[in-house]
Structure formats: structure tokens, C-alpha cells
């Protein structure tokens, strides 16, 4: 039996003093921790020990799917709230919250004009945490729109859209559009008065497209008026197409952040000035 569990002292199984593990004593609790973290299973997940020195702090970022979006090291300023306000991260996090609460809502929601409204009534009154999670989904959606607009504003006023980050700014503008569409497409789904009339205002606007107004209206409504076809179109956009587009755009956005030199640091000269200075330096060096 020995050798299976390298636990407190000499191992727990069959050892009389092994009982100490559960009875307290810091040393022994630490050993439980050690038992877990030294198991083959744990090590197969986390390849390096808890990051405490330079090497392991680099390794933890490089070896983790979630963390490898970051570089290993960033300027102190990137960690300051007053530079980025964490807005891009918060927008991403609201998207995660929206996905989680959204899946929960999908368990109960039925996208038909007869059922949609009543499934939400049922969700609000008869489902544990139903009302809480629906509220959360709604407020997180508004929070995401606000976070995205503020993030864009932060990036603008810090000049962080400038080359080489120019194309990533364009992706960011697309993300703004997709965020607005995500929020707007979700607006119709409760099928209450607010939803119905907000969408009809939106359709009026879309229908005013020059030259192809009728076609646009038809495509958005799936018919001549808001009905079952409209609901299913907007539902599909809301739960599949737009989230997938967002994920794809976000992945590109984050990847480009890394490829374009990570978080922006101050640049005081444009290319011409830099070149001129370099030429000057070379001339001085020649004497």
C-alpha cells in the first residue's frame, strides 16, 4: 500500500499517524496540498510549479491557454488602472458572463411568438435564480455596450490606434458594430411590448436604406411584418451567428494586440524624425 500516496509523513493509508492529516496541524494540511500538487494528474495540467521566481513566472504565462494572450512581461504602466482603465478586459469579461447567463436562458426560452413571452414569465416566477440570471444578462449586455464605447474612447485619446495598430482599430470598430447588433438582436426575444416596438423602430430605420430599402426590410423581418419568421431570424443571429462572429473578431483583435507590439507605449517621434536622427547620429559617429 505504501508508495501510492506520498502523504503526511510516511503516507496515510494504513499508517496510524496518517490520521493527523485530517485532524489539523498546518504541516499536515500542507501535505494534503502537496499530495494534490505532486500527483501525476495535477502535473499533467500544470507543467510548472507555482510561479515564485523569474523563470516560473514566465513559464506560467507561456504554458497557459488563458494567460498566453499576454506577453511574459509588460511595462509597469500597463498594470496601472489609469492608463487602460481595464476596459478591453472588462468588455471581454462581460461577454463571458453573457455567454454563461445566455446558455442558462436558452434552456428555458422557446423562440416562438406563442411561447416566448410565457417562457420568460415562467423563468421569472418558477425557476430558481431565473429572474436573477435574466436580470444579469440584461445588465451585462448594457455594461458590454458601455465598456466597448469607453474602451474605444480610451484607445482614441491615448493615440493607441496609430500604426502599427491601425488595422486592429478597424477590427475594434467592427467589434463595436457586432456588440451593438448582439445587444439589439437580443432586444426582440422577450416578445413584450418594449421588444416589439423597439424592433419596429429599428426596422423602420433599416427599411429606409436608399435603393434597397424594401429588400433590407424583407431580409430583417423575414416577411412583411414582425412575426414568427422575424423572431427566429433574430434568435438565430443572437445565439449563434453574432456570438461566433464576436469570438472570431475578438481572437483576431487579441492576436493583433500581441503582433502589433503589445500595449502602446509613448512614441515621441514619427518615422521621418527618427530616420533623420539616425542619419545625424551616423554622421556624428563618422566624425
Amino acid at each position: 500500500m505504501r508508495g501510492i500516496g506520498p502523504l503526511c509523513g510516511e503516507g496515510v493509508i494504513g499508517m496510524p499517524h496518517g490520521a493527523k492529516v485530517w485532524q489539523g496541524g498546518l504541516g499536515c494540511e500542507m501535505s494534503v496540498w502537496k499530495y494534490i500538487t505532486q500527483s501525476r494528474f495535477w502535473k499533467s495540467i500544470y507543467r510548472n510549479p507555482y510561479p515564485r521566481d523569474r523563470r516560473t513566472r514566465a513559464m506560467v504565462v507561456l504554458n497557459s491557454l488563458a494567460l498566453h494572450l499576454h506577453p511574459v512581461r509588460v511595462p509597469v504602466r500597463a498594470t496601472r488602472i489609469t492608463y487602460t482603465w481595464g476596459l478591453g478586459g472588462l468588455a471581454t469579461w462581460t461577454f463571458v458572463l453573457l455567454t454563461l447567463t445566455g446558455v442558462f436562458l436558452m434552456w428555458y426560452y422557446i423562440p416562438t411568438t406563442e411561447d416566448a413571452y410565457w417562457t420568460i414569465v415562467k423563468l421569472e416566477t418558477g425557476v430558481m435564480f431565473g429572474s436573477f440570471l435574466r436580470n444579469m444578462h440584461r445588465w451585462a449586455a448594457h455594461a458590454m455596450v458601455i465598456a466597448v464605447i469607453l474602451h474605444m474612447t480610451r484607445v482614441f485619446y491615448t493615440g493607441a490606434y496609430k500604426p502599427p495598430r491601425d488595422f486592429n482599430w478597424v477590427i475594434g470598430v467592427s467589434l463595436l458594430l457586432v456588440t451593438l447588433l448582439l445587444s439589439f438582436s437580443g432586444y426582440l426575444l422577450p416578445w413584450d411590448q418594449l421588444a416589439y416596438w423597439a424592433i419596429s423602430v429599428g426596422m423602420e430605420m433599416g427599411g429606409a436604406t436608399p435603393l434597397i430599402g424594401k429588400q433590407v426590410r424583407m431580409a430583417l423581418l423575414g416577411g412583411f411584418e414582425i412575426g414568427q419568421q422575424t423572431l427566429i431570424r433574430w434568435y438565430t443571429l443572437h445565439v449563434i451567428f453574432l456570438p461566433l462572429s464576436t469570438i472570431l473578431l475578438m481572437a483576431t483583435h487579441f492576436w493583433r494586440v500581441r503582433k502589433d507590439g503589445n500595449i502602446s507605449t509613448p512614441v515621441y517621434e514619427d518615422d521621418d524624425e527618427e530616420k533623420r536622427r539616425a542619419v545625424e547620429r551616423r554622421r556624428q559617429a563618422r566624425g
Binding site: 510561479p51 504565462v61 499576454h70 511595462p75 498594470t79
Partner: peptide
């Protein structure tokens, strides 16, 4: 402010 620091734990904690 431009000196590099490790993302873990400085940025990850924020």
C-alpha cells in the same frame, strides 16, 4: 513606468 514587470502576478491580479 516603462520598466517591464512580470504579467504574473502584477497584471493577472489586476
Amino acid at each position: 513606468e516603462l520598466k517591464p514587470v512580470h504579467v504574473w502576478p502584477r497584471l493577472v491580479s489586476v
